[in-house]
Design a protein around this nucleic acid. Structure first.
Lengths: 208, 208, 208, 208
DNA sequence: GTATAAACGAGACGGTACGTCAGGTCTTTCT
DNA sequence: AGAAAGACCTGACGTACCGTCTCGTTTATAC
């Protein structure tokens, strides 16, 4: 990844710490305070309403301290978001791949219906205006979950539960895409029933 | 629709014209110039980089003239976008619903791969920050296309090409969702091959 | 004069007013308030301690309003200073040129011993760091007074009170220079006695 | 002298060296490098444009090393200036005091026309904003030269070349003041001809 | 015709936030 | 314990736009 964003939010600081720098090390408390302030402010005023000055003031920190660590608002918010987003929860392994997928889809819908969904929508949206943001979001959110799902699909193929000629990437998109689409477009609600209906449809096809 | 956006870009002006106002009528040339300038500038500097002052300057118009007609940047850009976006192109009617869908999917992918795709992604993204914008986008883009697609699906059900118990809304999302997801996320390209594979998958299911 | 400073402090505003500008005219109250605030703040915190933000805040005015009218701190302070500095007080005309000069020298020393002296020293000092400032100061303070003095000297020559071969410019410098030098350097006080002694010395020479 | 400036630039360092301090002694190379860097930078970007950070960077030295030795920018620059300013060159002693003065005036004008003049003007100007700076400048530049000149004048009086009732201080100011005034004000050039004319005028008076 | 009314372009207004810079202090590691 | 490095907080910089507000002008209807 050649993004300007750190793979994990801790890294920026660790990097600075591990190296045998001369000079005063970056203050880890400031780091935490900034991220917390960013999180709070996004919750209060939204991403668009968030300002670096506001974050600095709330964190009790100079603006330069923020600019020294993050190149822009997006990257800061990204780190702030991911610090309290749970890691990919993992598929169950019931032996029945279709059942595993069904459960995972319900779980995803449930998660995206809460505050996480709001954050994800915001990040995805901001990715349209910021290439690095988009790249970081893909690496830290989308790809991790897709990889997992792809593995399950492959297991399903190996076990004969899924047709041999199905492209796992396409299948994963067929399952996830409609959910994210509803999340962003809002033309219809993200219900468990939708998750089930969608899973059934994709897994069973349209034939009688 | 209770949006602050006009359904058609002309309306605001017509409204002002039809009424037997005293006073100077709004200048239709200014209207056109503003929309054109907005379009040009979005193309040049992107939505985020677009400013009302820039539009006014490029259109040879005072800022007030813009603020008199649109309440904010989003609504202006929305009107500007939709003025040169083609109406829903329409499904073919070959008699074979599955074939009609397949063709339509390819057409959509092709359209979204060009400048229209960029605009749609931008609008969808901005919808996350502006409720009215989102509502207007749903009404003027998404719903029009979904309605059409739903009709075709219903035709398919009536003709026995599609299972009776399929929810048309879910099916439409299963088809469209993955495409918009790739458009926004960019984790994989929008190729005709993807359109075909996706259509096949959704229409035929995963069983052997 | 090709300086960026106005010859008289009023001019900037008058210019804007007199001309058949389109657009909202500059607010004369703001103009006054800014200059007053600048004057007050220089008195309170000194030139070095004065900030544009401070002036804006005290004047109840946006920073841009100041930047729209003055290119920098120096030029603002210059205008502020000159608004309450008396015009060159004028030489007496007793018929005796030497007496006229003697009186004028005393008057100058007296003036430079008060707050005006402090301002003049500041302006002269800032001229070292700002070419335009220096130019404006020469035009609005020094040259006006030198011109007057030169005329008196010429009168003295015409009346035979002063040697025919004296260069008026040199004579004027010989009179004024030492006073400004003491003002700036502070190595000795600016007393009326000094004014008299200096005048006598320069006018009468060193011979017995 | 109660100034915060050292009388001679070496002293601060010598102090630290001579004393039987514990700890690492101050590096003399750093001292020289800092002064050299300050000198270079003043020449390149002027006093106003000079920054402590810039000096530190150019000298290859930490900012703290500078702050440990000089309390502020002015005092550093003062030391830097005086390190390469020649000591008062001294009056000639031709037996004729008036001739000695004439030669000295020409020499001064010549010196002040070069880079030294620029430095002197800067120091004098900064003295307006910094009392200690002014005091140090008076002690290290002005008074040294005035003392010398006063002695010559006294010699002139003793030899009967100069009127007995002339105040040497006033006479010295009458000679030097106009030169420094032109240096600072810039209303007229500092030419040898001016030096001669001024000397003649002051020494001979205005009478026929 | 002459009011009256509204839109026009221009541009000044008070603000907010930007991202940068330098100040002077503090804290680390190395010598 | 001093030196170099570099992070810290502070506060001002000058700029860009925001959305509002005069201006004087133009272009319509209404009296």
């Amino acid at each position: 990844m050649s993004s300007k964003f750190s793979e994990k939010s801790e890294e920026l600081y660790d990097e600075a710490c591990d190296a045998k720098h001369a000079g005063r090390p970056r203050c880890p408390v400031a780091h935490r305070n900034i991220l917390q302030a960013a999180r709070d402010l996004v919750a209060e005023v939204g991403f668009a309403g968030l300002t670096i000055e506001g974050v600095a003031a709330r964190a009790g920190v100079g603006k330069t301290t923020i600019y020294r660590r993050w190149p822009n608002k997006s990257s800061l918010v990204l780190d702030a978001f991911f610090e309290d987003i749970s890691p990919p929860a993992g598929f169950a392994d019931t032996g029945n791949v279709r059942e595993d997928i069904r459960r995972q889809m319900r779980k995803l819908v449930k998660e995206l219906n809460g505050p996480t969904g709001c954050k994800i929508a915001t990040l995805l949206a901001n990715g349209q205006f910021d290439k690095d943001m988009a790249e970081a979001f893909r690496a830290r959110w989308i790809e991790q979950r897709r990889a997992e799902a792809r593995d399950v699909v492959k297991r399903g193929i190996a076990q004969g539960e899924i047709r041999r000629d199905v492209d796992p990437d396409v299948l994963v998109d067929a399952l996830y895409g409609p959910i994210y689409f509803r999340l962003l477009s809002g033309h219809a609600p993200l219900t468990p029933a939708f998750a089930d209906a969608l899973t059934d449809l994709v897994l069973s096809g349209l034939d009688d």
